[in-house]
Amino acid sequence: MSDLAVRTLSGLLLILIALVAAFLGGYVFAVLVALASVVMLAEWRRIAAGWGFGWSVGGFIYALLPALALLWIRDRAAVDGQSIGFELLLWVFIVTWATDIGAYFAGRAIGGPKLAPSISPNKTIAGLAGGIVSAGLAGFAWVQAMHLPQVLILVGPLMAVAAQAGDLFESWMKRRAGVKDSGTWLPGHGGLLDRLDGLVPVAVITAALVLGGVV
């Protein structure tokens, strides 16, 4: 089986698990988020081993904040007194996943100048643009279908930039540590941190926007 096929199958399985847990909500979603947070923290500590106490604290915050954001979005997010938690949570997922997919295929198909060659040699400016376009289109479609606040149409492409910044940050950490992946247990992806690095900023920023009354 090709690397792309392995990556696709394992990615689809993770998406299915996330969607089922998000739909069920409650303890099921809370347990999944808690488990993901623990694994992320463990992988962070593996990468940043020996970097000092500050990095240990940073890893705890890095794993905790998106977990709290996702749980709050699912159970508490509301606009004008009407709950939009499930629909907004899926918007967060959709925008993040669309960014990854758009960046991957645009980067491979177009190539061209590198985005940050000293951090992640495989990422290209074309990939960044593809991620922005893909996230914008997918986010727009979901906002219209679910009648979510229209401001999210403008926010979607910006979230793609945030997601790719999160990806680059984790790539920088791995390069500094001299490791290829955050783990080896997830076929085609490495570790969970490799898969969720883009979701971290998107979840936190989305929760902050709702709490701040922007959405």
Score class of each variant (00 low, 15 high):
H147M: 09
L89C: 07
G156P: 01
W142N: 01
P66S: 04
T184V: 12
D197L: 09
D194R: 00
S171L: 10
L88K: 03
P187W: 05
E43V: 06
A207D: 02
E170A: 06
S120V: 13
F169S: 10
I110Q: 07
V161P: 12
L137A: 12
R74P: 03
L148A: 07
G166K: 07
A129G: 13
G188Y: 08
D167L: 15
L90E: 05
K180R: 13
K114Y: 03
R7N: 04
H189T: 09
L64F: 10
A163Q: 13
W51E: 10
I132W: 05
G183C: 10
T99I: 13
A207Y: 00
G198S: 15
K180V: 08
D167Q: 14
L70W: 07
A116K: 02
A103W: 13
L154T: 01
Y27M: 11
Q144G: 03
A109N: 13
Y104K: 08
T206N: 03
L4R: 13
G58D: 13
A138T: 07
I205Q: 06
I125S: 00
D181I: 09
A162C: 14
S37M: 15
W44E: 00
W172E: 04
R74T: 06
N122K: 14
V179F: 07
D75V: 06
V79A: 05
I94P: 00
P117W: 00
A177E: 11
V155G: 01
L24H: 08
I119P: 02
P113R: 14
I110R: 11
V161Q: 10
V200E: 02
L88T: 09
L16H: 05
L211D: 04
I73R: 04
L16W: 06
A208Y: 05
L168P: 12
V179T: 12
L9A: 08
A177Q: 12
W55G: 02
G107S: 11
L16F: 12
M159I: 03
S2N: 11
R108G: 03
Y27P: 08
V28A: 08
P157K: 11
A36T: 14
V31L: 08
G59H: 14
G11Y: 11
G188A: 07
A116D: 02
G130L: 00
G50C: 03
W185I: 09
S37D: 11
L128H: 02
V204G: 03
G25K: 08
R76T: 05
F29T: 00
G136C: 12
V214N: 02
P201M: 04
A98T: 13
L115W: 07
G188R: 10
T96L: 04
L19E: 12
L154C: 03
G81Y: 05
F93N: 06
A135I: 08
H189N: 07
L137P: 10
L13I: 14
Q150M: 12
L35Y: 07
R175D: 03
